[in-house]
Design a protein around this nucleic acid. Structure first.
Lengths: 151, 151
DNA sequence: TACAATTCAATTGTATAAAATTTAAATGGC
DNA sequence: GCCATTTAAATTTTATACAATTGAATTGTA
């Protein structure tokens, strides 16, 4: 492939992923609107439903987001009554995020979302699973690259 | 797979794509900073280097972005001297986007970026190409779904 | 030809993202 | 125990994204 072809939009791996991510988010929108949460809030709650009483740091590590994004988002979830934010008495630098009863209850209202999305995706389960494996593998590799300054 | 597993963060196809898209953008950052442009501006210029003198609508169709995102972005590219924005005399509703000489010249400075990124990706070319095909296919399918209100 | 419907870009309002800086708290030598 | 270093969260700044609305221009049609 010559340099001219490499510059074409349709040849860009990054663009396929970038545009796809945005379209997927839009696909979630009507379902999440019923619950009164945004996509990033949904992803954050998924992480908390698995394990809460975690620091912003740990949550950010799992979501690949930093405090600049999470702090305002968690304050919104707190204002909505789904989580609490309390300074860890053991180490006042840490803020512990915990689900409230309403936060836990929301999981039941959201539990059919993954199945609904799978159904809407318009692709076979096998295909989706295979691509997910590769995306996850690539995500880890790139995250490590981004973690180092050089290169 | 039971409903509990379907709710796990690592099982979410959407999250793999969403997080990967953000990490890829970060990977581009140091390269694009040298050129003084952002990732979305780079993608927009890729589209224009292929074909310019297009309306905001057409450009948005190729980039999967609407005027709410493109209008301020194109104004920045205009302020940087890379594009011009002129109302189409034939149909005053349309705004035509054209590259300036500097905008065209920037392509030469950017032409080694795709190769550099391929190198950094840490995955085989075959793997990247295969996943890109599937992401692109899925992108088209979901875009059509998002275009229709029902479903 | 009026004029309702449509189309396009811009605007408004809300919510992310991420780099860079700041502030407060804790830690590790000495 | 003092203080430089480190760490965590918050804040600041800049740049997307997108839904919804607005306003101007065009089109279809009676």
């Amino acid at each position: 492939m010559d340099s001219e072809d490499l510059m074409k939009l349709d040849q860009q791996f990054c663009f396929a992923v970038y545009a796809c991510a945005r379209e997927i988010t839009k696909l979630y929108h009507p379902l999440l609107k019923d619950l009164g949460i945004t996509y990033t809030q949904y992803i954050t709650l998924l992480a908390l439903w698995e394990k809460d009483r975690v620091t912003v740091k740990e949550l950010g590590g799992r979501l690949y987001l930093d405090s600049g994004t999470l702090t305002p988002l968690l304050k919104k979830l707190e204002a909505s009554g789904y989580v609490t934010r309390t300074r860890d008495p053991e180490d006042e630098r840490n803020v512990l995020i915990e689900l409230t009863e309403e936060g836990r209850a929301l999981k039941l209202k959201a539990c059919d979302i993954p199945a609904k999305l799978f159904e809407q995706a318009g692709a076979s389960v096998e295909e989706i699973l295979a691509v997910r494996e590769q995306m996850t593998s690539l995500l880890h590799k790139i995250h490590i690259k981004n973690g180092r300054e050089e290169n």
